[in-house]
């Protein structure tokens, strides 16, 4: 599938063994600090999961890699380029080589499934209509939805929508695909299908994948490496086997779904006695 010519292709794809490198990345809005020093390497060709509870800054990491947010400090290198230092044109050139699957797909509701997948091709290539048609149907076939090409996104189930978004994310044969909660709100069957597709796409197209999720069991089945993020820091990591065998309390709490542990049940508050003495 060596198609979709991109002018930027030559500048990437060479030398560096790591698709993405983050070192000492901090980020925050105003007074609220979200990331407090993230170090992470994502090797070329691997599927890496970033796990953590809701609101711990997982999605923020993706936005930093994609360049929609700028870090307060630290280095973010994607395919040998320092993302925070790119200007608009450089950033857009880089983004053509990055696919992203948003939470709940973010399909364009006014376009058909076919046009959704064709969108990046129409925007960034001068391919004739027949070539785009063939390419789109190939991508849709890869996710098993060639027959749904003429449906509108509103007519798709959650899992099908996610698969279409996946086909759109890989439309331009990117070198890196980022998945933001690809499993959220899916039934077990769709969840398995999407998980397998992520793995298969990664290996068949030779891309690198970053999966942000809190679904630990599905991730363990498909990824090469996991990072656990909590309160703006990476608290644990390892291969699926290492994670399964881990005795780290945070990893254990995450795997076992215990309500209390390193992630406390109670939101930070004054001691209970004090609260009631005051109330009286």
């Amino acid at each position: 599938m060596k198609t979709a010519p991109s002018p930027a292709a030559a500048t990437f794809d060479t030398r560096c063994a790591n698709a993405v490198e983050l070192s000492g990345v901090t980020f925050g809005y105003d007074r609220r600090t979200i990331l407090k020093g993230i170090d992470m390497t994502i090797p070329r060709g691997k599927v890496v999961a970033i796990m953590g509870g809701s609101g711990c800054g997982k999605t923020t990491i993706l936005r930093l890699i994609g360049g929609s947010l700028r870090p307060r400090s630290g280095r973010i290198v994607v395919a040998g380029q320092s993302v925070p230092q790119l200007d608009r044109d450089g950033l857009y050139a880089l983004r053509r080589r990055i696919g992203m699957l948003f939470q709940f797909g973010a399909l364009f509701t006014d376009l058909t499934v076919f046009e959704n997948v064709a969108f990046p091709m129409r925007e960034h290539t001068d391919l004739p209509d027949e070539a785009i048609r063939d390419l789109v149907l190939m991508k849709l076939n890869a996710v098993g939805l060639r027959g749904a090409a003429q449906l509108k996104p509103a007519e798709l189930s959650g899992g099908m929508g996610r698969r279409v978004a996946l086909a759109r994310a890989v439309a331009l044969d990117p070198m890196l695909v980022m998945y933001d909660e690809p499993f959220a709100g899916l039934d077990p069957i769709s969840l398995g299908v999407v998980g397998q597709l992520i793995r298969r796409m990664n290996d068949a197209l030779g891309i690198t994948s970053i999966v942000v999720t809190h679904d630990v069991y599905e991730s363990l089945k498909i990824v090469d490496h996991l990072y656990f993020v909590s309160e703006g820091r990476i608290v644990a990591g390892g291969t699926p086997d290492e994670v399964r065998a881990s005795s780290d309390p945070f990893v254990r709490q995450f795997l076992d779904g215990a309500p209390d542990g390193p992630v406390p049940f109670h939101y930070a508050a004054r001691p209970l006695e004090q609260e009631f003495v005051r109330a009286r």
Partner: peptide, 21 residues
Amino acid sequence: AEIGLMKATDQLAAMEMMAVD
């Protein structure tokens, strides 16, 4: 409503990530 909905459902962000302004 259309643009707001596109924003609420991340369609605008998705476009930007596809290097389309």
